[in-house]
Design a protein around this nucleic acid. Structure first.
Lengths: 234, 234
DNA sequence: GCGATGCTTCGGTGAAAGCCGAAGCATTCG
DNA sequence: CGAATGCTTCGGCTTTCACCGAAGCATCGC
């Protein structure tokens, strides 16, 4: 039964506030040091060390030593997807009472952030909406597809490269329910490519210490021209 | 941050062997009684009752009273997907050492089973393979799409009904990594429709007490004619 | 080198939670 | 109406584990 013990082991590793906070912090795909992670979890370094060891043992994170720092990151995209799916349920229940909007730090996160390897927040959802409206992608429930026109658009923008493909569609995207917006944004290969492109073109900049992204002036122009999306800068 | 406390709460609910076993048992989408669930978890009824209460509190299962029985089921497809993603990691690590194949009970599960609302096991993977080979669906990483030809085939088989749709493709499927086969099978709306069709046509029958499915003689014929898949009966 | 920084290991404490036996409600069946 | 069945609540036992202070290694900067 895929040994339900092993299932419990993995879930238990996530099922502790400090470890959950660390994993959530790692959800932007970057690698953080043990001290940074201790801070986000509001615990001492010793305690964090123990937690990180446990997360590594069950295979949720991997570490890399660099000088006197140890950088920890999520072990794989599968892990990110697993945490994402937990977050979805974590947010979903709150649907009745509107999400508590806590402070300006949260506002930045809601505006734009990374979700492992793709864009999320208002920015991510707006892009998904725009691509949907133009017929570039279709989203239905937990499935999504890039249309022939969408493919051409992505190639023209230099976001995706395709070899000669006889078929018009390729399955490159996957919807991902945004926990702050409650609407889907784009994940999968396409989502990752858009995010990489945006970072590459300096349309967005990572804010140090959070998963929040800053939309640059160039980004305002870029997102408008590429997707027809109007975003506030900042 | 979607309150990482809530994330931990949900994960912790899954992160206990008895509860994980119960949830895994519920992964076939059916509703089971407290006593049945106590049995699969190898605990007494009292203990199971406590666990079920906790799972209900965090919103992972919902219960329905019927006479002197209480039927418990997964609260939603989102929950099923979350557990599925944990199972994926639970299986994935074992990639190095080949999965321990434990006993004949397991063999039935490997052959054919339900995964919440779609088919899994050798049967599910074979169907996905066949549809991929014929160009009906394409699967790439964590994304999948039904092609125009595939759509026609599914309509002809009476598996899917589409309204008049100007575009050739609709995003109706989603790959789901099979933990026993380590290859993707089909989930999403298409996966659910195929499963419903197979049950409806009596191509498969649910085995009482497990998630395993029995392939009927009619099923052997049906799966061959519909998908070109050759399965052993039983 | 020597001190500072980053991280881990060790030991002890306290709280949380899993487990079962026993007992208590409901519902159903004879 | 009892007796049986399905399930829950209560009480007490035991284990697990999160936490921090103190101490121990490495690595870096001066």
């Amino acid at each position: 039964m895929a040994t339900s013990n092993r299932i419990a082991e993995i879930a238990a590793a996530v099922g502790e506030p400090a470890r959950a906070a660390m994993l959530a912090a790692l959800m932007d795909g970057r690698a953080l040091t043990a001290t940074e992670l201790a801070e986000v979890a509001a615990i001492t370094a010793q305690t964090a060390s123990g937690h990180l060891a446990r997360l590594a043992t069950v295979g949720l994170i991997s570490a890399e030593k660099q000088g006197r720092h140890r950088y920890h990151r999520l072990a794989s995209a599968e892990v990110a997807r697993m945490i994402e799916s937990v977050m979805q349920i974590a947010g979903g229940v709150t649907l009745a009472r509107p999400l508590p909007r806590t402070g300006p730090r949260d506002a930045a996160l809601r505006q734009a952030r990374t979700c492992y390897d793709h864009l999320a927040g208002a920015l991510g959802v707006s892009i998904a909406d725009a691509l949907r409206a133009s017929g570039a992608v279709e989203i239905e429930g937990d499935a999504a597809a890039l249309s022939k026109a969408g493919r051409a658009q992505m190639q023209a923008l230099g976001i995706l490269q395709f070899g000669a493909d006889p078929r018009g569609t390729r399955p490159v995207c996957r919807p991902c329910l945004d926990w702050s917006e409650r609407r889907p944004h784009l994940a999968g290969a396409l989502g990752a490519a858009i995010c990489a492109h945006a970072l590459d073109q300096a349309w967005v900049r990572r804010r140090p210490g959070t998963r929040a992204l800053e939309i640059t002036p160039a980004g305002r122009i870029g997102f408008r021209q590429a997707f027809g999306v109007e975003m506030r800068a900042g």
